[in-house]
Nucleic acid binder design. Structure first.
Length: 468
RNA sequence: GGCGAGUUGGCGGAGUGGUUACGCAGCGGAUUGCAAAUCCGUGUACAGGAGUUCGAUUCUCCUACUCGCCUCCA
């Protein structure tokens, strides 16, 4: 299947052709690890998880290398350590664990390589020395700066010119800079900050150099795809390109950028107060599969709006598909329509549309296979079906109550309702149903005789006990 | 100020130079003790203007509006 990808560098959709026949390599900018990943962090993770799955499908699991870094040296981390009095390594270790857990809950596969910046200080220093030797960087007052004017294509990726940006005048001009646009490769560390010995004294790397150095170490001078959020296009990726190209590396062939996430139509930001983490959602009982579904329901190059309404719709759809595919063996081959949608610049919304059609026409095993391909693992879906009650995914929704207790109470309520109905005590049955609904528990049954409950609005598990 | 993206039916959201997206909601029907769930059927759309074309929602230009990045947060 031909894979087409929109390349930011050329601003058009191109047929993807790996540098090495039959193998693919990708590098995606990962998080700075000092706090829980917020919902916006999850978008690139899921987008590039889908790319990774597609490439694995096309070239085989063994032939795809996926590098995603952890930035574990950064002033935000230093600040957090100073605030809390905790050692930096403790903060970064903990945050990395959280990140992998949270993203795992969204069905994201772990990359083949997850390098930490602090493990690649030596290659960074070597690269900086090389850049100085080649006249693309200079040392000044313990800093090393990249000479932006020395790279003629600077600004090409993001479509900017150095002169225009300076005219824009939002550039901080430090006294040691030869040119306002020059950016830091290395900076000095005071004794209380993390630092490494270098030819320019004890210091630490600037932000951009790590990706250039780690991509080179792990993927070589040239690799296929570099991805990240479009906020990174400038300056981060522009700077990466400048460094790597000037060091003599071809660097990435294709550049992919996902659009940003919004919440209820607005940018998610701390200042607007609509900022929340993936873990917040999971703790509120939103299943990871639902988050994944909502994220992939919008094409990655369009702004994605996280809304309560989408969350509800996603949950409904997944529940329906889970019921359909329960006990169904997935077909061995991916349905061609699903594959062609995803192969066309990761058109995951199109793939969902195909899945809807498969569900509608009763092609259950193709549906099951398609779901697995899109990252909704069979075992998770089975769990989802168990969760037709909506509770298995809400273990922490109300503090210390555990899911089993809730499940048990729900089962008892269902039993009671069932017995009222079978003995045709309609008024009692209706009274119970109304009461349950008032507390967010929707009682349902189907022709085949099965009974279940769904979580509705106003769900309050603490009131379940009273319903009996 | 600079750069970029977008404007599709009630809502969400794909796609195409001439033919059905799809989902949700709505409406009609089946089923149902009633209501859901489930099943069947069904309507509404391509921001505005100009141009290219036999023909444009789909290409070009202009206008309006929205959003994002350039700033701690992806």
């Amino acid at each position: 299947m031909t894979i087409k990808i929109y390349n930011t560098k050329t601003r058009q959709k191109e047929v993807f052709k790996p540098l090495v026949d039959g193998k693919a390599s990708m590098y995606v900018c990962g998080p700075t690890v000092y706090e829980r990943a917020h919902l916006g962090n999850a978008r690139p993770v899921l987008v590039f998880d889908m790319l990774y799955r597609l490439l694995r499908h096309e070239y085989g699991v063994e032939n795809v290398r996926y590098v995603r870094n952890f930035t574990d040296v950064d002033d935000k981390i230093n600040a957090r350590a100073a605030e809390t009095g905790r050692p930096i390594s403790e903060i970064t270790d903990e945050t990395i664990g959280w990140f992998l857990d949270d993203m795992g809950a969204l069905g994201a596969l772990e990359p083949t390589d997850t390098p930490r910046a602090t493990q690649y200080i030596a290659p960074m220093i070597a690269m900086i020395e090389d850049l100085i030797a080649k006249g693309h960087a200079y040392a000044a007052e313990g800093h090393v700066l990249f000479k932006v004017r020395s790279y003629k294509d600077y600004g090409k990726l993001s479509g900017r010119s150095v002169d225009d940006m300076i005219a824009g005048a939002r550039v901080e001009v430090a006294p040691y800079k030869e040119d306002p646009m020059d950016f830091v490769l290395w900076k000095p560390s005071s004794d209380d900050l993390p630092g490494w010995d270098s030819p320019w004294g004890r210091g630490r790397p600037g932000w951009h150099i790590e990706c250039s150095a780690m991509a080179y170490e792990l993927l070589g001078a040239a690799f296929d795809i570099h991805g990240g959020g479009n906020d990174l296009t400038f300056p981060h990726h522009e700077n990466e390109i400048a460094q790597s190209r000037c060091a003599g590396h071809d660097f990435a062939n294709v550049w992919m950028h996902n659009e940003m996430l919004q919440v209820e139509g607005k940018k998610m930001s701390k200042s607007l107060g609509n900022f929340f983490t993936v873990r917040d959602l999971l703790d509120q009982g939103v299943p990871g599969e639902v988050i994944r579904f909502v994220m992939l329901s919008t094409h990655y190059r369009k702004p994605m709006d996280w809304t309560e309404k989408k969350r509800v719709e996603a949950e409904k759809t997944l529940r329906k598909w889970a019921r359909l595919t329960l006990d169904v063996e997935a077909s061995r081959n991916l349905h061609p329509d699903v594959l062609s949608a995803v192969s066309d610049d990761l058109n995951t919304p199109g793939a969902f549309s195909v899945l809807h059609r498969l569900a509608g026409s009763g092609q259950k095993s193709d549906l099951a296979n398609g779901l697995i391909f899109l990252g909704f693992e069979a075992k998770d879906l089975a769990q989802f079906e168990d969760d037709a009650t909506g509770f298995k995914f809400t273990p922490t929704i109300h503090g210390n109550e555990n899911a089993d207790v809730i499940q048990c109470q729900t089962d008892r309520i269902l039993e009671l309702w069932k017995s009222f109905r079978s003995s045709e005590e309609w008024s009692e049955a209706d009274r119970l149903r109304t009461l349950a609904e008032e507390n967010g528990l929707l009682l349902k049954y189907s022709k085949d005789g099965s009974y279940w409950a769904e979580r509705g609005p106003n769900f309050d598990s603490s009131k379940l006990e009273a319903l009996k």
